[in-house]
Design a protein around this nucleic acid. Structure first.
Length: 579
DNA sequence: GCCGTTTTCGGCCCGACTGTTTTCAGTCG
């Protein structure tokens, strides 16, 4: 049982306790525990295996009771407390709660009065007009319930960051055209550069809020208006993405930006801190709790400043220790775009890219890079027209020619001979050893047989990592956001082996991949494994995806020193030199 | 259920919008 699953159990306990009508702070405790567990970089199971229950002590929001439940879950795979709750309320209730507009109170009432214990039962009751008789429900409620159920699946999907970003930019431009608009800015998980986005939050400072609201709900891609108020409105776009807009006074812009950037967990911790200092933070500003005296709120820096903290970059705001780090003056000096000196995972049309070697080199130079590694697929990846030995040697000649031309022009830019060699199911590499030694940059990756047990996959990857031929392990978990789950693999073991063998782990910048994810990046940092932020470019335009990689790395607290391709060429070459 | 610059007891983040009410509870973020 892994962290995500354990966190889910605690969320379920929270939900069921809420339906039952338990103490709301106890409910919050279970949810807080879920939030904390989701954000941990280390596996609870592993901590417990290595150090027993004592190793679980000191994790914030995990006290005696919840710790005991974690141990129970790890050792037995079950949680008696949850099972007891499920005897009182069937598990279908958890689905009923997912219906928009139905919260714990209404779910409990529906169960008590009508015996509704599943979404299907709710749908039936609503269409037979049995719901409108209950107190607090009317005719309109029934219609809303039916609509919410029909949209349950579409709305629950999260969107890729790159998709949400495009809509956010478009809506921002659209709103800016309202006369008297001072500032329009997306906040929320988008501003934190989370890899997937649930909804888009846009903040506006303006002279005429009504005009902004009117224009907003008339944005061409709006499918439905969920709510429209004086300062806040919510719509759903045709693609299913929810967008919230909020108008504010200039005076509150910083406080609102802080508040709506989140995360929820970060904000709870920040407000908790404010409370302890006798202050109150809301989206309108920082106030002295007694007397409601406004202290700050125009600038985000001042919100943090008033609770004794330096400004915290949005990417770090997940309540994963950033507030403590800020307080102690040890926030990381996060990596920036200008720190990147080259790209170490690039394809040309020799395999499955769409541009020539010369085009890809020229485009890399235009990015201001010092080097690029050409890493076409090996022959096992047939669909990608992978290279056999003969074609590899031809490519070497072509690269030599390009490098010679560069030198002739006095250009210090360097093209490295690389490969993205396939890691076969047994962990062997898809090029002969002798050939592998001739590459300057060997990137290895899994492209098939994804459905292995964690033990087998871990063994397979570790064999490749410890082969003494590999420099970089590419897209280490193989996930494709929204379409393919990561394969089962013990990343901690892989990282320990990578550290031992001097192998770097890739952060693949493709918006569909972002693999390593943020938590894994953080783990790599803690273990001292260098990360290569690559684009896996198959076209000259893909180099621009580096921004996704950089922000994802920032979410993992990575600094310039942690990044392989932030090193100048001479130092990179030292790293790539293997015996 | 968790936690401590207000505390081992008594607190625990804050506000907008909606629908069903007739002044507000419930939901959501």
């Amino acid at each position: 049982m892994e962290n995500t699953e354990i966190a889910k159990i605690f969320y379920e306990i929270g939900d069921l306790l809420e339906v039952k009508g338990g103490d709301r702070f106890r409910i919050r405790s279970y949810r807080n525990a879920g939030l904390v567990i989701e954000g941990l970089t280390e596996s609870l199971r592993r901590l417990y295996d290595e150090g027993g229950e004592d190793a679980l002590k000191g994790i914030p929001k995990i006290g005696e009771s919840i710790r005991a439940k974690i141990v129970e879950l790890i050792t037995t795979g079950r949680c008696q407390y949850l099972e007891d709750l499920l005897k009182e309320f069937p598990s279908g209730m958890l689905d009923v709660l997912k219906v928009s507009g139905i919260g714990p109170k209404k779910a409990a009432l529906l169960y008590k009065e009508l015996g509704i214990e599943s979404v299907e039962a709710l749908q039936k009751a609503a269409s037979q007009h049995k719901v409108r008789g209950l107190s607090g429900f009317g005719e309109l409620s029934e219609q809303k319930i039916l609509k919410a159920i029909s949209e349950l699946k579409a709305v629950s999907a999260r969107f890729k960051l790159s998709v949400a970003l495009k809509y956010a930019e478009s809506i921002t431009d659209y709103i800016k055209r309202v006369e008297g608009t001072i500032d329009v800015m997306p906040a929320g998980s988008l501003r934190r550069w989370k890899d997937t986005i649930g909804d888009v939050d846009i903040l506006v400072t303006c002279n005429d809020s009504a005009k902004v609201m009117d224009r907003f709900i008339n944005y061409p891609d709006v499918k439905e208006v969920l709510s429209k108020g004086e300062t806040k409105s919510t719509v759903v776009l045709k693609i299913g993405l929810q967008v919230d807009i909020r108008t504010l006074d200039k005076k509150s812009f910083g406080a609102a930006l802080q508040y709506f950037t989140g995360s929820k967990s970060h904000n709870v911790a920040l407000r908790d801190r404010a409370k302890r200092m006798g202050l109150k933070i809301s989206e309108y500003g920082v106030f002295r709790e007694k007397g409601e005296k406004w202290l700050a709120g125009t600038k985000e820096e001042d919100v943090y400043g008033n609770v004794g903290l330096p400004w915290i970059p949005p990417e770090l705001r997940e309540n994963r220790g950033e507030i403590e780090a800020a307080e102690e003056g040890r926030l990381p000096q996060l990596l920036g775009l200008s720190d990147i000196r080259g790209d170490l995972h690039v394809h040309t049309k020799e395999s499955d890219g769409t541009y020539s070697l010369e085009d890809m080199v020229e485009a890399a130079q235009k990015k201001g890079y010092e080097y690029v590694a050409i890493t076409n697929h090996s022959k096992a990846v047939g669909v990608a027209h992978g290279l056999d030995e003969k074609r590899v040697l031809e490519e070497f000649k072509a690269i030599d020619t390009v490098n010679a031309q560069l030198r002739k022009k006095g250009d210090k830019f360097r093209v490295l001979k690389g490969t993205e060699v396939d890691i076969r199911a047994d962990g062997s590499l898809d090029h002969p050893e002798e050939l592998l030694s001739k590459f300057e940059c060997v990137v290895a990756a899994v492209h098939s047989s994804f459905k292995m047990s964690s033990a087998d996959m871990t063994k397979r990857i570790i064999r490749a990592v410890s082969s003494n031929k590999v420099h970089i392990l590419a897209h280490p978990t193989g996930r494709l956001i929204g379409s393919r789950e990561p394969y089962e693999v013990d990343m901690e073991k892989v990282m320990d082996e990578a550290k031992r063998c001097g192998v770097s782990l890739e952060l693949n910048s493709y918006p569909e991949r972002l693999d390593l994810n943020d938590v894994h990046c953080r783990l790599a940092r803690e273990k001292g494994v260098p990360v290569a932020i690559s684009t896996d470019a198959h076209s000259i335009h893909h180099y621009d995806n580096i921004v996704y990689g950089i922000h994802n790395a920032r979410r993992g607290w990575l600094e310039k020193k942690d990044i392989l391709n932030a090193r100048p060429l001479c130092e990179l070459l030292k790293f790539l030199k293997k015996s």
